[in-house]
Design a protein around this nucleic acid. Structure first.
Length: 500
RNA sequence: GCGUGUUUAGCUCAGCGGUAGAGCACUCCCCUUUUAAGGGAUAGGCCCUGGGUUCAAAUCCCAGAACACGCACCA
């Protein structure tokens, strides 16, 4: 092996540790061992052994042979005791020299904290009660060259935890559990939808018009076509095209969306969302479906429908509350928007509860602002807020009993919006009108207003069946189900600025 | 984008004008039923970057960077 070039940023302490380990690596090679071998066959995960022998009493030895593999997290008494960690948990290796060949005794001295090894032996519980494997054979599976963070405090520097997630995962069981739970939640969600006959589809992430939501997009460029493309802010319009085409009556797209907005504890520039559409259904169906999905996933993944978030205890048990936007605002502020008709009256009402509005804001915009500022943070238990103003919902169908409203709901849990759904607007002529209203808003300075999408209207003109649509922000759902206060804790590699 | 914090050894943190400290990790010695840490002895630092103030700056001031938390924007 050639002399490796150390990173130029390396300090002398770091260099010393790394060089020492490289020296040990060459010693392994001198013993005829490849420190980076190809395979290893383990018989069991650590957690499986821990639970299988949970009842084994202290001091009892079995003759059951197992093999395990993982990372060395601690070495005590010159290698006699090693804590070995795999993704499921830890187990102690007991390597008494009387059980090891001379060669293995030599190799034991060449092990460091952080090395990956596989070990075989018999299961026993020590007199002090620690389940252990009495090692008769072990193999180096990967030499680690860098020192791990301190074992007691772990890695607490949040910046390093996000930038070097692999280190965080090695050191923090909480991080491992959270990200493992994320994966289970997404699997259960898919499984639930497959069970209901949904078809998973993929729609473009690179889009010539970033539609389906009100947000600023990222722009990128295709060289050969010499054209700008947008990273999608939502899959919505493409999914409904598939329903028009009759690919399936129930479709969903579960993937990343990108919004060029500020970063916060609840916002990452790329985030995971599921959008689903069901033909011949309306927003009432979507409410039922939202509740069922949350309840089922919580039960399957967490084993309970009662979750804790910070100081709040939240019940996801069905049925959830449903209240109209005007009801919700009335209950908290005493303002009854169902009896307010003019835009001017609405703005006065906002002023009376100290909500700032622009002189151009309409009845619907004012109502939405009051909800967001005065009501939203009080909605801890799950609740569907329904019947949104038409001007903030250009893709939703007009309410069957009030032309100022659309059939749309947003689900709030813990004060957050976690779902957004509507009876989809299927009338192509109405849709064109709504897009034109949006264009006027855009010209008036609203750079998040929806753009015209002629091809989408063409698709609607061929005929979209009555359709219910639902979007769920999965990162937030996962935050709720894992009691994570920051979205970065549920995203393995959150967006960060380069260090320098 | 604005405000407030944080940034010192590989990690976790003290120090807050007078040539840089601890614990763990590392190295060496001793030890073979320990478990955050078996016992002992070493070694390891452009104190985030760039300016200033001062006889003297890790420490005070100004600017910048990254990160965190609020606010703004939004899912």
């Amino acid at each position: 092996m050639n002399t490796p070039t150390p990173p130029s940023t390396e300090s002398s302490s770091q260099h010393h540790i790394r060089q020492t380990r490289i020296d040990k690596l060459t010693q392994w090679q001198a013993l005829g061992v490849n420190p980076y071998p190809y395979t290893y066959e383990k018989s069991d995960d650590n957690a499986v052994i821990q639970s299988r022998y949970a009842a084994l009493e202290a001091g009892v030895e079995t003759s059951d042979t197992v093999s395990v593999a993982g990372r060395i997290m601690a070495i005590r008494n010159s290698g006699m005791f090693i804590d070995l960690q795999d993704p499921t948990g830890k187990i102690q290796l007991f390597s008494h020299k009387e059980n090891l060949s001379d060669t293995l005794q030599e190799q034991l001295k060449l092990l460091d904290i952080g090395d990956l090894i596989g070990a075989e032996g018999t299961v026993r519980r020590t007199p002090r009660g620690e389940l252990s494997i009495k090692v008769t054979q072990f193999h180096l599976l990967g030499k680690s060259l860098l020192p791990l963070p301190e074992k007691y405090h772990g890695l607490t520097d949040v910046e390093v935890r996000y930038r070097q997630r692999y280190l965080d995962l090695i050191m923090s069981e909480e991080t491992r559990t959270t990200l493992q739970t994320r994966s289970k939640i997404i699997s259960e969600l898919r499984r639930s939808l497959f069970d209901k006959g949904f078809l998973e589809v993929e729609t473009p992430i690179l889009q010539p018009i970033a539609g389906g939501a009100a947000a600023r997009p990222f722009v990128t460029h295709h060289n050969t076509l010499d054209m700008d493309l947008y990273l999608r802010i939502a899959p919505e319009l493409y999914l409904k095209r598939l329903v028009v085409g009759g690919l399936a009556e129930k479709v969903f797209d579960l993937n990343r969306n990108f919004r060029n907005e500020g970063i916060s504890p609840r916002h990452n520039p790329e985030f995971t969302m599921i959008e689903l559409y069901q033909a011949y259904a309306d927003y009432n169906t979507m409410m039922d479906l939202t509740e069922e999905l949350f309840e089922t996933i919580a039960e399957k993944v967490l084993g309970t429908t009662t979750i804790t978030f910070g100081d709040n205890t939240i019940s996801l048990k069905r049925p959830w509350q449903r209240k109209t936007m005007t009801q919700a605002v009335l209950e908290v502020t005493g303002l009854d928007f169902s009896t307010i008709h003019s835009d001017a009256e609405a703005r006065e009402a906002a002023a009376s509860v100290h909500v700032h509005v622009k002189p151009t804001d309409t009845w619907g915009l004012v109502l939405e602002k009051i909800l967001e500022e005065k009501v939203e943070h009080t909605l801890i238990q799950p609740v569907h807020i329904l019947d949104y103003p038409k001007e903030v919902s250009p893709l939703a169908k007009t309410h069957r009993s009030d032309p100022r409203l659309v059939e749309r709901f947003e689900t709030r849990i813990n004060g957050w919006e976690v779902a957004n759904a509507f009876s989809e607007l299927t009338d192509p002529l109405d849709q064109r009108q709504r897009f034109e209203d949006q264009l006027r808003a855009r010209e008036a300075g609203d750079d998040e207003a929806h753009q015209m999408d002629e091809d989408y209207i063409t698709a609607l003109e061929y005929g979209l069946p009555p359709t219910g649509g639902l979007g769920i922000g999965l990162d937030r759902m996962i935050m709720l189900l894992t009691n994570s206060a920051n979205i970065r804790d549920v995203i393995a590699f959150p967006t960060l600025k380069p260090k320098h």
